[in-house]
Design a protein around this nucleic acid. Structure first.
Lengths: 337, 337
DNA sequence: GGTTATAATGGGAGCGCTCCCAACACGAGC
DNA sequence: GCTCGTGTTGGGAGCGCTCCCATTATAACC
């Protein structure tokens, strides 16, 4: 048994419209009346019916977090947990809720896109770590669905929130250079993701700034997974001469890399320095504790939620772009050559 | 610009009702008509308006995953990522969607409970890893909201899906005993969570079955976090004589424990055997690869979603209880004494 | 105290769907 | 050829809100 606006109106001796005005904080209600209505509302525990409201306003107050099929295998990475926590906090602060759209297969992506987006369950979506050429972007654009991308996107119509990956990578590699390393390898992320491409760009910029030639042999493309990090590191270690330091484009890959080093009978940081990226909670608990580039992941999610809600409420005439700054966190996997 | 039922009806030369019947797969529509209607629907890309449907049916086809404030700090544990993936898969298979309710603070929990549950955004809720005495359970029960708990709950009205934690722990400790260990410690989970309490119970049962006395000194309560695992392990290692094997009630804590062992200058498994619980994706990549008890976490989530949807559609007259079986995964952190 | 301007209130219409019931078509059966 | 019965179709009502507009109460001013 639950109450409707009309019930509250009757109980408070006013009209449906007045109760609606009270609930929605419209002015033009006499304070005495307002108070009496609130009293009744609290007493019976009235809550407006979300669907009825949506039907009338054409707003659901729900946004979605879309994790494209292409990156869904990365979902267990703590990056996503932190991102989700940030997004939910951002949502709650703006009276919004978060729906999850985790696409595991291309067929699911197709099916769910229609079911979820076109049926207006959602007012907008946060698009997580998409590939640069993901067709989802074009689709959202042409369907006119407000969205924010986590990570830079070249299309000028796309709003995004990102952390400066070029700068972050540059900071990490700069630091390795300051420690005397010159033969520095890197394990990149997938290069069709902006995070992957940008961190590689930062790596190259740092080397060039110090007039160290970029050696393509020292660049191995990884996939942001632990297993990928292990395999890529093994390849770098087989080089002769092997690198004395490696910039790994994610902490998760760095965990694999750490293991590859150990398997090869070498020590971090005595034989080889390692620096990761993300500063996930585990990083401080690795052995040895991982030096890394801290991304404000939670704030990234929170910001994305705010930007999206602004886009929804104030219209999306021009794209919003926000870039946060990363920060170097030095622990014990980096040492002087 | 988007179409309504009425638009489709006009375009197909039938009535609103007939289109509705087609969309909802009701019988009693002539095949020729049905086909013609589908054709129009596909051609213009019609999707029923979710809110309108909800208002008429009193169903949203959305369920929530509630992560109570009390366990929200554990959210970065890969356990939750896997659980979420399972739940979403279960939802999609049943034409449902998943909303996230991640409560970070008690105030948020209070506020969101009303906003989300009472306003009928959700048809039901999956309650994640709650404490045994969580007031949320009583509240959902008295509000008549269908829900499924992840993890056993004593109240006979509560439906739950669980993995047999007593059996899992027994398997792990049995194995340590078979390897010749008799001085076996354990780092438990929080004992006010069924997973924590049950795994401790399994530990005790295994010892008793082999007539090994339970030594309270060897039981340290942990909190399912990495840092907690490290601290608890340090305490066990300071014992004299120290245990030769430890059953750690989660892989995440085991990562911390592994590090504590290393900090103490000891080796796993030569000096001390370790066995974890969960088999999270990282477990195989630890150094050395972690022996553990595999929980079918994804299937747990999937099953929970199915049970919940059944509860929603077929009524919740009697509680559903399902218990899945764990499985021992032996890697390289356990060795003969 | 009468006239405006403005604030406060009530009620109708409509959002897009489902569900129910009435109406109709058509073949079967006598 | 009439009556059933079953299969098929259409339209009204209603889900619980918001929004607009008409109406009435109140304040402001000379």
């Amino acid at each position: 048994m639950s109450y409707t606006l009309e019930d509250i109106a009757r109980l408070a001796g006013v009209s449906r419209s007045t109760v609606s005005r009270v609930v929605n904080n419209h002015p033009n209600v006499r304070p005495a009346v307002r108070e009496r209505v609130w009293e009744v509302i609290h007493q019976v525990g009235y809550q407006p019916h979300a669907a009825a409201r949506s039907l009338a306003t054409n707003r659901t107050n729900v946004i979605g977090l879309v994790i494209p099929e292409a990156v869904s295998t990365l979902f267990t990475d703590p990056f996503f947990s932190l991102l989700i926590r940030g997004i939910t906090d951002g949502c709650y602060a703006r009276n919004y809720h978060l729906m999850l759209a985790l696409f595991s297969t291309p067929a699911q992506e197709e099916d769910l896109y229609n079911r979820l987006l076109r049926s207006r369950y959602l007012d907008g979506v946060v698009l997580a770590s998409t590939r640069l050429d993901d067709p989802l972007v074009g689709r959202l654009l042409s369907d006119g669905i407000p969205f924010v991308s986590i990570g830079r996107h070249p299309d000028p119509r796309v709003s995004y929130v990102d952390v400066d990956n070029v700068a972050g990578a540059r900071m990490a590699v700069d630091h390795l250079i300051r420690l005397g390393h010159t033969r520095i390898g890197t394990i990149t992320g997938p290069l069709n993701m902006s995070a992957g491409a940008d961190r590689l760009e930062g790596y190259k910029q740092a080397l060039q700034a110090h007039h160290i030639p970029v050696d393509e042999q020292l660049i191995v493309e990884g996939d942001f997974t632990e297993g990928g990090g292990l395999a890529s590191m093994a390849r770098l270690l087989s080089l002769d001469p092997r690198p004395t330091a490696v910039f790994v484009a994610s902490d998760t890959m760095a965990m694999g890399a750490l293991r590859a080093v150990r398997q090869a009978g070498l020590r971090v940081p005595q034989d080889i320095s390692l620096i990761g990226y993300d500063d996930v909670p585990q990083a401080a608990f690795l052995d040895p504790p991982l030096s890394t580039v801290r991304q404000p992941i939670q704030r990234l999610g929170e910001t994305a939620a705010h930007v999206l809600v602004d886009l929804i409420t104030h219209g999306q005439d021009h794209a919003q772009r926000l870039v946060l700054m990363p920060e170097l966190v030095l622990r014990q996997t980096t040492a002087r050559l």
